[in-house]
Design a protein around this nucleic acid. Sequence first.
DNA 1: TATTGTTATACTCTATAACTATA
DNA 2: TATAGTTATAGAGTATAACAATA
Lengths: 145, 145
Amino acid sequence: MDDRHDDPAAEVWQRIRAISHNPTAMAAFHQITQETGLPLAPLRALLVLPLDEPIPMRQLAKRLGCDNSYVTSLVDALEQRGLAVRRQHPTDRRIKVIMLTDEGRELTKRAQLADTTPPDSFANLSPTEITTLRDLLRKLGPDQT
Amino acid sequence: MDDRHDDPAAEVWQRIRAISHNPTAMAAFHQITQETGLPLAPLRALLVLPLDEPIPMRQLAKRLGCDNSYVTSLVDALEQRGLAVRRQHPTDRRIKVIMLTDEGRELTKRAQLADTTPPDSFANLSPTEITTLRDLLRKLGPDQT
DNA sequence: TATTGTTATACTCTATAACTATA
DNA sequence: TATAGTTATAGAGTATAACAATA
């Protein structure tokens, strides 16, 4: 009657995507965008910004896997809201480094927590089941150093 | 040294998202967009279109979980490329039904295959491991009738 | 000459509001 | 009056190409 789950591998694949796209999984994140008015993309940019150490724009582009020109607008959005500032690189004057403000640091920590906290349904699994699941997922790689 | 995996649940959560966003997982899909020039969103729309039975625009909007006005542009894109056609509903003249063409049907089947085929790394798991994984993921819901 | 960042531009994705035709 | 679809518009996300300043 239900032919979607004939193939266990297909069901696994479908479920992995369903869980990761689960709206409740992104709820905390969207909550932040509501409160701050900061769009999702700049908020994500915060996740790859070091809390303490300034990094060049170019480095941010590499971490986000996006174009340099797009980083300009991303950092514009952060700077407009006082979450980050651009500074001159001490030796190479072509480079601008981006650095979180205190406010930006607080928001970043909050975003990181929202980003790494598993959905509530994880409570349905025992610790043993979680480690079994972890070991199986490790085999699906990619290796995460 | 590596403090990302202290918490097994956090690692599971991270890996679930990493696997589902794996670029190679979307490669077949992007391959189709390259070949056909059809953007990603209209291609996804094909996935929820029945192969044989025409459905109203409104129904398509519901299946995609998007606004009616957006369906208009989605179907425009499909129609411009000869993948689907609009027809009058036989009894209610407000309604337009959308129906796949032969070409659209072929592309849809190809897209469905690309969408449901698990990544190659699934070969790293034995059939037993796959079913174990499936059972654990079922507990993470949501229930999928 | 090569590199860093910015600007201008354009395309995709998607929603809201106003509108037309039909029920 | 309510419903189906369309149009106009706008904002978010993102890239390419041309450009300025610096190395």
